[in-house]
């Protein structure tokens, strides 16, 4: 398994614990990551708002850069996944558009032939590493943890774009949690929006949404939430205090990134997974971990 790694902007900046933990678990699981260091931001929908054509050209460039290395792209952010997928779909379905964009790419010495696939880490873990393999790598008992997944809208919708999970009944994250030994929490809001896209426009509405999602998870017994999108993580973790204010009650729900959850199960320490960076304390998660029964080898990196 070798991928052109597209870390996204936030995953290497304010949420660089995502990048760090991704690299740690990929290393352990044998996923070779060739980072697309020269790729631009995917646009996150905002570049598209200002200049759709440029966003498309920039994403085409990213795809061309990966294609040049004969690699598919691995993302760790629902928003990156959507924006790259959307660009890819447009380019591969509209030959006129592809020709137009290639004319521009030619002037920067690139060309995109439409062969790249873009996969989110979640799908790669479930489909390519495989749940059985993951299960065999589990060294830490997560059975004390009720884990609420939070996909991030753009990973599960639109159903016709990604082709992995059923948008009405997404199960990839839950199957992963189970394979890791945790208990997935069943709650409707796991499919909903974290609110991040409107945090800077209508903070009140964003925080109301944000709070509702987390409180719904807690009501169903969640001890921890894990998300596949760093933008969601910002709203859920960094802005949890504001969400509490909007809801008028405490939330106190630790929020993990997907690879951090996987890393914990594999015995990587919370320190190495940079969980100390989180705004909402993850100490309760660390406390709930026990070595897996029958495991003699101490956890990696303690």
């Amino acid at each position: 398994m070798k991928y052109a790694y597209f870390p996204g902007c936030v995953g290497q900046d304010s949420c660089n614990e995502l990048d760090a933990s991704t690299k740690l678990i990929s290393d352990e699981l044998g996923i070779e990551l060739v980072e697309l260091e020269d790729a631009t931001c995917c646009g996150a929908g905002f570049v598209q708002d200002v200049n759709y054509d440029l966003a498309l050209a920039l994403n085409a460039r990213t795809l061309a850069l990966a294609e040049r290395q004969h690699l598919d792209i691995l993302t760790v952010c629902s928003t990156c996944q959507f924006n790259l997928d959307r660009a890819n779909r447009e380019l591969t379905e509209d030959s006129k558009k592809l020709a137009e964009v290639n004319k521009m790419l030619a002037e920067v010495g690139l060309r995109y032939n439409g062969t790249v696939k873009i996969k989110h880490l979640l799908w790669v873990l479930v489909d390519e590493v495989g749940l059985a393999e993951l299960q065999s790598r589990v060294k830490v008992d997560l059975s004390n943890l009720n884990v609420a997944s939070f996909y991030g809208c753009q990973l599960i919708r639109p159903g016709t774009l990604h082709g992995y999970d059923d948008p009405d009944r997404p199960q990839y994250f839950e199957r992963l949690i189970e394979a890791l030994g945790g208990k997935p929490v069943d709650y409707d809001e796991r499919k909903k929006c974290c609110g991040f896209p409107i945090t800077f426009v209508n903070e009140d509405a964003s925080m109301r949404m944000n709070a509702k999602n987390m409180l719904a998870a807690k009501e169903k017994g969640a001890d921890v939430m894990a998300t596949s999108c760093p933008l969601c993580h910002i709203n859920l973790d960094m802005y949890q205090g504001k969400a509490e204010k909007a809801a008028g009650q405490r939330i106190e729900l630790p929020i993990l990134h997907l690879p951090q959850l996987v890393g914990l199960a594999m015995g990587i320490s919370p320190e190495r997974l940079r969980m100390k960076r989180h705004i909402v304390s993850t100490k309760s998660v660390a406390r709930a971990l026990k070595p897996k029964e029958g495991t003699v080898v101490p956890a990696i990196g303690t």
């Binding site: 929908g45 959507f82 809208c153 753009q154 919708r157 639109p158 159903g159 948008p167 909903k192 929006c193 609110g195 991040f196 896209p197 409107i198 426009v201 209508n202 509405a205 964003s206 949404m209």
Partner: peptide
Amino acid sequence: IWDCDTCLYCNE
């Protein structure tokens, strides 16, 4: 238009 959170439910 700026209050849309781009959750994609409507398109879906």
